[in-house]
Design a binder for these strands. Structure first.
Lengths: 207, 207, 207, 207
DNA sequence: CCCTAACCGAGACGGTACGTCCCGTCTTTTT
DNA sequence: AAAAAGACGGGACGTACCGTCTCGGTTAGGG
């Protein structure tokens, strides 16, 4: 009877067994170009031709790595937001939550905001983009936030019956809505938002 | 250089005295077709050709009335949401607010939600669409909601220092975020959302 | 008194009932450009892009009129050879035949020869081209030649059992073979060819 | 005393003394694949990729041996027609000539005909192919045929002033023309052709 | 018996051209 | 004038091959 447990963390995609290896610089150049175009001239002028020209790369080279425009944009988005996912954890749940929301708001207030908005727009006509956004970006953040708020409950700081999911819907939704309609999500605004939301989180008794 | 853009809502003074008058039925047929296409096959396949074909109308006829694709979509959106703007007012501010949010959530949960999502997507590369959405749709709703919540404060039902604007950011943002990412905004969810938000609105004393 | 005879040669395809009529100058410009490219730089560099550029026309305009490269080339060929189909008829069958072969040889010896060679090449991977060549170019010429040689038989100038089809195979084949392999088909050569072929056509008796 | 066995002039046809020798089987596999593709799916789908796939060989391996597509096709053609060049010689010039033409017609009537037609097509945009065809295929056959007809003259079987070159132009041209336009060159047809041509070759006196 | 140069597979890369889909403008006839 | 029909210039799409260029892994012969 072979239990035959597969090795726990094997990367199944054997990276490169044969053939000329891909030029990593090209990869970077393309993503950089894609990022720059999205930020500078926007979604409407984001075309494979434009990216290829800006990256000094043949159009075919792009198609060799990404099946279409949308996938390229998705990866461009992911790369732009990868370093963003550093969550700081302190003692205080409310401070952590505040920091998290403000961090999100600040990020989306900068150039990366244009990328995120483009991705959201694209997601309206591309299920893959939608899925990517949720799975690779939204859910991790949500998972972390949930834990954070739960800690607040455990510490008796927040109400026991707090509906964590809705608080997060509200916080994240508010930030995105303003992003999508050209309204800044600066620190002052973000502070107000968090304060307002936290107000409903505390315990009614002696606080 | 004929700009020739007829205003969406005809002013009372008729500028032309001669020539064949515009067929009003054609106007409706086009908007109906635009609506149907957006709802049925989505933003990606929304093209002037498709609308013209579905409306049994020549492409020229569309361009005579709308300067481009985007304006047509905008008007299609406005028409779809015009009858939605019925606000019911009862005695209780909290019930009114609840009703309002649930009404918005329900509307966006139906076929009209696809239109709204398309408009939001388009707004990312078209300032005019953004402006239209804010001015003709978002602001009226916001104005009404603000009054509603203010009434709650005046009635001493809500905290005096309630940040109305942020509560609305949160409520509206949450609904749109879920709309944009394919998550339903059904009544149960909407109820939870409102309950959670209201929790932070009440006065701390005996309520 | 109007006898009202229907026009003898009505084109059944109602040419253009509605819509903006096609610009005939564009048609000419495209065919001219196609012709020039085939003659000057040859089949290998004959591309839709090149033709469009030379004709100062959008690529799409070409595709609106011809389904693909090959059909364009075919029409270019037909137009180049249309004025060639003037057959002169004198009293003497042998002179007529001689004139015909020499005429064909001379035509193919000039710039039009490059077009014809390109068409023959293309016919090897496109049945439509093959059919077009045979039906619109080869057969008319063959039909006329057959009549011509038959007249020679009727006049007792040629042998009664003359195999007209084979004589034509030989004459036409010889000209094309030389065309296809870069050997000139000048008048001297053509004369020799015809003389040689005619030698087998005469009656054996006192002639 | 130096033995100095260094070869005075290096033979050009032994370029490498070291390294892994080329696999002869690969050479055959490639040419077989090229032949098969040309015969089965035609010139249009004859691509290096297709040949490589069919031969189970890397594209590089092909390019190491042939500079480009055209040269590969040329060699494929030559190999296909190499064994064809067996000329049978009997006593009778007219029979030999007849046999020769029929043999050519029969060969081109079979699968090899597709190769030959492809080569002729390619020759229209590649001088090297043209030269190859003439030098390696056409001329040897022509040289042999010329000798054969000359023998007929010498034997007083054919006319003294017979224009051998034109007779050959006619015979070969006729066969190729039919090949290039999808008309069979079967034995019956070939017989008729030869008979017709021979008719003009005989002496006028008592034969 | 190992060294080494060439072979072989695989595939990246810069390119060219293809044929398609829309865009928004224009030109013409019919109503 | 409006309306239908469709030509036109143009931009971008994604695909198919071209011929060149690295790679890692394999074979023989020559030292």
């Amino acid at each position: 009877m072979k239990t035959e447990t597969a090795p726990p963390f094997v990367e199944s995609h054997s990276p490169r067994a044969t053939g000329r290896p891909r030029d990593e610089g090209v990869h970077r150049a393309i993503l950089d170009a894609a990022y720059a175009i999205l930020v500078e001239v926007g979604l409407k002028h984001f075309s494979i031709d434009a990216v290829a020209a800006k990256a000094n790369v043949a159009r075919t080279t792009i198609y060799r790595r990404w099946p279409d425009k949308m996938q390229l944009m998705n990866e461009s988005f992911l790369r732009a937001f990868e370093p963003t996912l550093e969550f700081s954890s302190t003692h205080s749940p409310r401070d952590d939550f505040r920091a998290l929301v403000i961090s999100l708001a600040r990020t989306l207030n900068g150039p990366n905001g244009r990328i995120a908005a483009s991705v959201v727009a694209q997601a309206q006509s591309d299920p893959k983009t939608q899925e990517m956004f949720l799975k690779n970006f939204s859910e991790p953040l949500r998972k972390h936030s949930t834990a954070l708020l739960q800690a607040g409950i455990d510490k008796k700081e927040f109400r026991e019956d707090l509906n964590i999911a809705r608080i997060l819907d509200a916080a994240v939704g508010a930030v995105y809505f303003r992003l999508l309609f050209g309204q800044s999500t600066g620190p002052a605004w973000a502070h107000q938002l968090v304060d307002t939301l936290l107000e409903g989180c505390y315990r009614k008794d002696g606080q």
